[in-house]
Amino acid sequence: MSEPVIHTEQLTRKFGEFTAVDAISFSVGEGEVFGFLGANGAGKTTAMKMLTGLLLPTSGKAAVAGFDVFTETESIKKNIGYMSQRFSLYDDLTARENIRFFGGIYGLSSASIQEKSKALLSSLDLLPVADSRLSDLPLGWKQKLAFSVALLHEPKIVFLDEPTGGVDPMTRRRFWDMIYEAADRGVTVFVTTHYMDEAEYCDRVSIMVNGRIAALDTPTAMKDSFGVTTMDELFIRLVRPGAGEGI
C-alpha cells in the first residue's frame, strides 16, 4: 500500500459514559475504495464525523490527507469531498446553479467554476437539462451530479455516506463506475453503508460492531476466513455472538 491517506490509531470518542467509537485503528491508501460498514448505531457516523473534522475525538490519533483531526480540522475540510444520500444538492436550484454554489463554497475562482461547470455538464451529458431544476431530474442523474460536485475542488479523499440507497441496479452500477474512475485517478473513496452487498464493490472493507472494528480485509479474503459465501452471512456471524439484537 502506498502512503496512507487516512490513518487512525486507537481513535476513541465517548459521549458521557457511552463509548461510541472504541479505539479503532486502520489505514486507507491512496486511490483505495474503502468500505466502512456497520449496523445502525455501531459508531459509523461518529467515526466519520471525526474523520471529516466535524467532531473532536476523545483520545487516540488520526490524520486525514496528512492533517491532524485534533488541530487541523479546517485544512481537512478543504481537502475532502462529501456526499450523502440525504443531503447533497439543492433540489430547487438547477444543475448549473448547484455547481456554481458549491464551487463558491469550496473557494474556486469564478473563472475556474465556469470552466469546470462546462466540462462537468458535458461529460455527464447534462447540458440539455443544465438549466432545469434538479427536482425535475431522475434520481440517478442527481446522484452522478452530486458525486461530481463533491469532487469539484479536486479533493484527495471523498466521503460517501450511504450513496446508493434505493436506486435501481443499473443506476447503481453507473455510480460505481464513477467511483472506480475517480479511484483510478488517485482519489481515495471512503464509503459508509449498512448494505452488505454494497461492500463487495470495495477494495477493502471494515465492519464495525459496537464501536469496534470487528473485521478488516478485502471482501473475498474476509468471506474465506469466516467460511461464508456472502457478506450478509459474514455480518450476521459478526453481530450475532454479541448482544444478539442490537437496540
Binding site: 449496523a39 445502525n40 440507497g165 434505493g166 449498512h194 448494505y195 452488505m196 450478509d232 455480518f235 450476521i236 453481530v239 450475532r240 439484537e245 442490537g246
Partner: peptide, 11 residues
C-alpha cells in the same frame, strides 16, 4: 426492510 441492517432484515 429499507434502512434496516442485515441481521434484522433476515429476521
Amino acid at each position: 426492510t429499507t434502512g434496516v441492517d442485515a441481521v434484522s432484515r433476515r429476521e
